[in-house]
Amino acid sequence: MRNVAIRNWVIGTGTPVLLLAAWWFLSANSTDPFFPPLETILIRFQELWLFDHFQSDVLLSLGNLFLGFAIAAVVGVAVGFATALVPPVRWMIDPLIHFLRGIPPVALVPIFISLIGFGTQMRVTSIALAALFPTMIATVDGIRSVSNDLMDVARVYRLSRKERVFNVLLPAAMPQIFSGLQVSLQVAFIVMIASEMLGSSQGIGAMTLLAQQSFMTADMWAGILLLGVIGFLVNILFSLLKRKVLSWYIGSRRMARAA
């Protein structure tokens, strides 16, 4: 049994190392213009991002991402609550929301470019609007699935409307809201890159596409690596936050399963 566990651990950590090593050695003397040596890519990575363009491009992109996501999170949860708790509002905006959700988020970027221009404002607006819908829809679903018993108990205890919203509904809907937020974060990341690729000159996405168009392949690979790492790290950080905030929920689920 222990041997199996050790073997699995070795396989698990060994494979990525092996793949990276294979990439390193197979590309070492590569003259293929599309696939430069990994060493060259890493050198360009260090030259570009650590820390020449760090402030002007990396921080700019990340700032837009977090600002847009934060706006989407706050507005999404607020509008979600309004729609779920006031039926006429829900009936009124439900069809519109479903229609807007059907539009690929990236397709909204050209519209914002034509309305606001190429600046930071456009990028944050695009990110915020595109990331709004997953959170909002998850919030509505989360509130609707709160059990009636819970609400009855809250009413029996004569909790005020405010208490019911903040102390009963919000925590009960939290697991679903967080799932929605995670999807929103991924959408925000995609739209961040797209808004930079469409005609702006700053940001990681813009630099990566520009490098591709000017056949600076190593620079392009460096950009792809950075974007991949950011996508991965942002997701991991959010998962950690989620586990922390929802620890009571994860614990109660585990107990329910054990019982």
Partner: peptide, 8 residues
């Protein structure tokens, strides 16, 4: 997301 490898 796939948009990351779009340039490639």
């Amino acid at each position: 997301p796939p948009i990351v490898i779009l340039p490639l």
